[in-house]
Design a protein around this nucleic acid. Sequence first.
DNA 1: GCCAACGTTGGC
DNA 2: GCCAACGTTGGC
Length: 173
Amino acid sequence: MGDPTGISQERFWLMKSEPDCFSFDDLAARPDGIESWDGVRNFKARNLLRDEIRVGDGVLFYHSSIAEPAIVGIARVVRSGYPDHTALDPRSDHFDPKASPEHPIWYMVDVQHVAPLTHPLTRDDLRRHPVLAGMEVLRKGNRLSVQPVTAEQWRTVLEVGGVRDPFVNDSGE
DNA sequence: GCCAACGTTGGC
DNA sequence: GCCAACGTTGGC
């Protein structure tokens, strides 16, 4: 890995969260900035969490279901797919009676806070940019809470949103 | 609050 | 396995 953010520069994702529920600042406030991405109950997203998302992948943190939805920061994956135990907990909002320790059904990953964008990118910002206009999150009716992002989109979000290029250790660290 | 887009469920 | 009904997501 070797770069200061620990992002491998190979695969990138966008993850949605309702900030009233769990915000990017909430992630920053967790011990070591790490939290498990639990509660995903959609099979397509589950397959990504279980099979595709790896340690070192970059994550765009997107705030949804608010007046001005936006990409607000970047994070990285620090643990790949493992069973989402909230599905086994009858007191959890995400309890699933069909899940069991032998057949967990649902999976989660752990993500770690890396850096906020100096300018969060709203949907209008994304739509106005020739590269970002192609992002899946803009597609009408798209409800996938975990979605792939291309390397070009990732780079562009960091450029336009104002995060120092995390792949270059230019900070004297 | 409306509504479009989807995913899920259940009858057949 | 089809498909209608229903529920949820999420932008607007």
